[in-house]
Simulated assay, not measured.
Amino acid sequence: MAETNKFPEVQGGGSLLIAWQIKGKRVLVVGGGEVAAGRILNLLNADALVTVICPSAGLNPEVAHRVANNQVTHIDRKFQPSDLSPLPPAEPIAMVLVAVDDPAASTTIWQLCKTLSIPANIADVPPECDFYFGSVHRDGPLQIMVSTNGKGPRLASTIRKFIAEALPPDAGRAIEKVGRLRTKLRQVAPAVEDGPKRMGWMTRVSDAYSWEDMCALDEEDMDNLLKWYASGKVPELEVLKGMGSGSGVDVDGLIEGFDGSFGFSVGA
């Protein structure tokens, strides 16, 4: 029998943390208060199509702002069961978020969602949630979520702030540059079988340059860096910058003769 102590130990009781791609999908938010406002912002940041169901008198200033600027669709009344089953050609409901001060109504909506197999979150009622919202740090493409599985939202916020303060400056901008470089690389090496080599080379690039170095790369630098892909090598930043237009550098000769003896600028 194979040894089991070398494998990760199972820790039950957790949640499956995933990045849910809700872009372009319809989400119902029942309620228009402070909690609903936070939920709505999260959904809009994820490019969801948001419908808010709440009498106008119950909208707080932030939700009213979203309605006035056509960032969400507003239904000016209380929730009705038919809201969960829109008639064609309307898109089906992908998710329901409930944030109202009416436990009985919330439970009724939860039960209807279960019947229709629609994922739902009932604010402040963990047993009536298919998923939880965590405390999120956002910096461009970088998203870090801290979840306590609904047990300690305030503690999640404290931990999230601690993590955010420890991150290097411009982390989000550096990730944007990495993403741009990956897109360019897929154009250079688009074949499926190139996948392992692409991943290995991008790992070396990420290890070779610091956050600041990545932020400093411009389009010409990225194009020059991609010239090293075929060789599998990654130049020191000074070498890369020396390849700029008008430098007179023999790029092919430089890449051919590069053996790594320049060293690498390893980022934190």
Rank of each mutant, 00 (worst) to 15 (best):
I40C: 08
A166T: 03
P103R: 00
A57E: 12
M214C: 02
Q71G: 13
E219H: 02
E91N: 02
D101W: 08
A99I: 10
L181G: 01
T158D: 06
R182T: 07
L142Q: 04
R66Q: 03
E220C: 01
Q80H: 13
M243L: 13
L16W: 06
G246P: 01
G253P: 05
F7L: 07
I40W: 03
M214Y: 05
T107Y: 08
V249G: 09
G248H: 05
V178F: 09
Q111T: 04
R180G: 12
A166C: 13
V100H: 03
G12T: 06
G260A: 05
F262V: 13
G248E: 14
Q71A: 15
G242P: 00
N60C: 11
V234K: 01
D76R: 01
H137L: 10
A216Q: 14
V30G: 00
R204S: 14
P61H: 03
I18D: 12
T107L: 05
W110V: 00
P127C: 12
A268M: 12
K177M: 13
T108P: 00
L112G: 10
L59A: 09
I40A: 08
P126E: 01
D252E: 11
M95N: 02
K177F: 05
V205K: 03
Y229M: 15
V30F: 04
V249D: 08
R186S: 14
G257N: 15
P89S: 15
S135K: 05
E3C: 06
N224Q: 07
N70F: 12
N60A: 04
G260V: 06
I255E: 07
G140C: 08
K23Y: 09
